[in-house]
C-alpha cells in the first residue's frame, strides 16, 4: 500500500508542469471561444436561410424538417432548446461541431461559417414568444390567474399540476400560441396532457391526463391531481376521444384586456 501511495505522489509531482500546461491551454481555448461567443453572421438575414438549407440536408432526418424533433428516436425539439438554462449561441455551435458524446448526435466537420449559419437558422425558428410587448396590468393578471388558472397551473411556487407549469411559458411560447391555447385548448394538446376517461372494474370513472402507457398498463394524473397507475386488465373501457381538461375561455368570459393582464403577470414570473 505505502509503495503505491508514494508512487502516486511521485506521479503527481511529475505531472504538475503538465497540469499547468493543460490549465493554460484551457484558458487559451476558453478565451478563443469567448471571442466566438457572438455569431458573426447574426446581422445577416441570409444566414438563417442558408442555415435552413443545410439543416434540411444534414439534420432534418433526425430533428424533423421543422426542427421540432422526432420523439420516437429521442431527437429533441430544437425550437425549444434556447430556453434551457445556460443555453447560448456558442454552446449550440459547440454541440453541432463536437456532437454529444454518448448520444446519437454525431460531430460535424462543417466549416465554422456553415455552423454559424445553422445557429442562425435555429435562432430563427426558436419558440421564444416576445414578439409583442406585455402591456397588461400584471397585478390584475395575478388576481385573474388565482381565480381561473391556479387550480390546475403553477406559475411560481404554488398552484396545480394538472396543466403545464406556466412559470416560464412566455419565454417558450409565443403570445399568439398562448392566446390560442386559452381560447381553443383543444386545438393543440401537448404530449403528457392528452385526456382520457377510464372505466374501472369497481364501477368508477377516472378522468385524467395520460402520463405514460404501455401494452399492459397506463399511468395517469387524475382530475383530482393524484397520480394513479392501472393495469389495462382491470379496466372495462377507456375513452380518448374527449376534450382537453383545460376549459375554453371565450371572450365573453375573459376579455382580451384581461388576457393581456394574465400574460403580463406570467411574464413577470420569469
Amino acid at each position: 500500500m505505502s509503495t503505491e501511495s508514494i508512487s502516486n505522489q511521485t506521479r503527481l509531482s511529475l505531472l504538475q508542469p503538465a497540469l499547468f500546461f493543460v490549465a493554460f491551454a484551457v484558458f487559451f481555448i476558453a478565451s478563443t471561444a469567448s471571442a466566438q461567443q457572438t455569431n458573426p453572421l447574426a446581422s445577416d438575414p441570409r444566414a438563417a436561410r442558408a442555415g435552413g438549407v443545410i439543416f434540411r440536408g444534414q439534420c432534418a432526418t433526425c430533428h424533423g424538417a421543422d426542427a421540432k424533433g422526432i420523439s420516437s428516436i429521442d431527437a429533441p425539439d430544437l425550437t425549444l432548446m434556447w430556453t434551457q438554462p445556460g443555453m447560448s449561441e456558442n454552446r449550440v455551435f459547440t454541440r453541432i461541431q463536437a456532437g454529444i458524446p454518448g448520444s446519437i448526435m454525431p460531430s460535424h466537420d462543417f466549416p465554422d461559417t456553415e455552423i454559424w449559419m445553422l445557429v442562425s437558422y435555429l435562432r430563427s425558428v426558436a419558440v421564444t414568444g416576445s414578439t409583442r410587448e406585455f402591456t397588461g396590468d400584471s397585478g390584475n393578471g395575478g388576481r385573474l390567474f388565482a381565480a381561473h388558472c391556479n387550480e390546475c397551473h403553477r406559475a411560481g411556487i404554488s398552484g396545480g399540476s394538472l396543466g403545464p407549469n406556466l412559470g416560464r411559458i412566455t419565454e417558450i411560447r409565443s403570445q399568439a400560441a398562448l392566446r390560442n391555447s386559452v381560447r381553443e385548448p383543444n386545438s393543440s394538446i401537448g404530449r403528457g396532457y392528452k385526456p382520457i376517461i377510464l372505466s374501472t372494474t369497481n364501477a368508477s370513472n377516472v378522468s385524467g391526463i395520460i402520463k405514460g402507457e404501455d401494452a399492459f398498463s397506463i399511468q395517469v394524473l387524475d382530475s383530482s391531481q393524484r397520480l394513479r397507475g392501472f393495469a389495462k386488465s382491470e379496466l372495462l373501457s377507456s375513452d380518448r376521444d374527449i376534450d382537453s381538461l383545460m376549459p375554453a375561455f371565450p371572450e365573453g368570459q375573459l376579455s382580451e384586456s384581461q388576457l393581456d393582464d394574465i400574460l403580463s403577470f406570467l411574464n413577470q414570473q420569469l
Partner: peptide, 17 residues
C-alpha cells in the same frame, strides 16, 4: 437535391412524420 460530399451524410430530402 443534395450535395454529395465524402464523409457527409446526404439524405436528399426531408421527412414529415
Amino acid at each position: 437535391e443534395p450535395n454529395l460530399v465524402p464523409g457527409q451524410a446526404s439524405f436528399g430530402g426531408v421527412v414529415f412524420i
